[in-house]
Amino acid sequence: MANKTKKLFLKTADVIIENKEYLTELDAAIGDGDHGINLARGFKKLKEKLKKQSFESRNEIFKLTAMTLISNVGGASGPLYGTAFLNISKVISDNQLDLDDLVEIAEEAIAGIQKRGKAEAGEKTMLDTIIPAAESLKQSRDNKLDLDTALSDCLESAAEGMKNTIEMQATKGRASYLGKRSIGHQDPGATSAYLMLKTFIKGYSK
């Protein structure tokens, strides 16, 4: 299990690094233009560390990811994603994950991000991708859907959430300084969250 998780994080790192320019462009429009650069720096470091080590359990990988992002990103996404992964490391097991587990993981991630960023849904942040994704998982669990359907619905909700940030006005973070002028641009944090989620889901469904 840990080996598969390691591969998943290596893949996630590649995806973020590949999208460095795209994320930075999105951030340049409404923020300080460093989201891609910052995240890529953190994930590049993570790749180096992951490759050097072997892991016994998933939670070690989540913890290493958290601490590496916290120490190397340099922007708010470091503590935000870092705390999310740290929270997940506390609940994730090495068993085959079912929908109950995934809902718990999503809730922990959201709690971690909210603890640091104090944001709610609708403030044009990464949460606008992650909260709809979590809601979708909960619905699928309550409706007793199978895991593959649940994951594909989850990804769809995340994409929709990400796109909905275009019409939102930012009230948190650097973009909030732009006020109404932040409307009309997709949020870089919501986008990086989607890219990660997509990689996790595609990797996990395989």
Binding site: I70, G74, G75, A76, G78, P79, L80, G82, T83, R116, G117, G173, R174
Partner: peptide
């Protein structure tokens, strides 16, 4: 000063 400085300090 701003955002991540405050956030990192709190953490």
């Amino acid at each position: 000063d701003l955002g991540s400085a405050v956030m990192s300090f709190n953490m």
